[in-house]
Amino acid sequence: MVIRLAKSEKELREIANKLRLDVIEMTSEAGSGHPGGSLSSADLMAVLYFRVMNHRPSDPSWDGRDRFILSKGHVAPILYASLAESGYFPVDELKTLRKINSRLQGHPVRGKVPGVEMSTGSLGQGLSMACGFALAAKMDSKKHRVYCLVGDGELQSGMNWEAAMFASQYKLSNLVVFVDRNRLQISGCTDDVMSIEPLERKWESFGWRVITIDGHNIGQIINACKWAKRARTRPTVVIMNTIKGKGVSFMENNAVFHGKSCNEEETVCAENELEEAMRFCR
């Protein structure tokens, strides 16, 4: 089964909120984890796993699959939710997140979980790894694409810019990077901690195709992915303006929920809000 162009925008909005609900449930059950950045990237993940990417959940190592590298590995919950909901493993297993003997480690581990392409979580490294995947595809004349999600905070790490130069030099037009520009990191505002501005001009000066979108607008995400496919010689970066904690009122733009799960009361509120949002999508 190839999951492709499967879902309408309306359905994708509902799926994104289902993924958010999974994130809240699994991090609350675990008592820890990173819900904030998971929620900000939920719409992208819904679009990638339920519409844009070629992949076969029943055959995770299918050679023709598009590759997805989660550089911001701390948002493992949203990746696990996307993999489970698209059929890589039982949704029930999500509640084992971060528990002893679970394959759903705090940060994703290659070889442990079907669909996880690479071990990540130490920030700043996923883009280089994605370059390796993309270069291998070019060397072997393979047509699949490599998608990589990076956080905005982790762009403070110099290794990303080594990779940005590399992707440009090696004409990795099969590489698409999404920046989850939620403007918050664990210590506060990205601009205060260490500004990464001017972000668009940085990527442009490194030779990339750049597009900035609303990262919560399903239509814009889909269009950006279409635009990325038109790349011929240059890699593409999609800067997604997002809201950390998107979808749960008290978590939105709240850096506290970068690396902290909801307590019991907050969990109930968050679940109610997300269930309501899902009903609204129908």
Binding site: S128, A163, F166
Partner: peptide, 16 residues
């Protein structure tokens, strides 16, 4: 750019 060299190596190795 040695750090990038290792990162790129990881991706290449993951692809066989």
């Amino acid at each position: 750019a040695e750090q990038n060299m290792i990162g790129v190596s990881s991706g290449l190795a993951a692809e066989g």
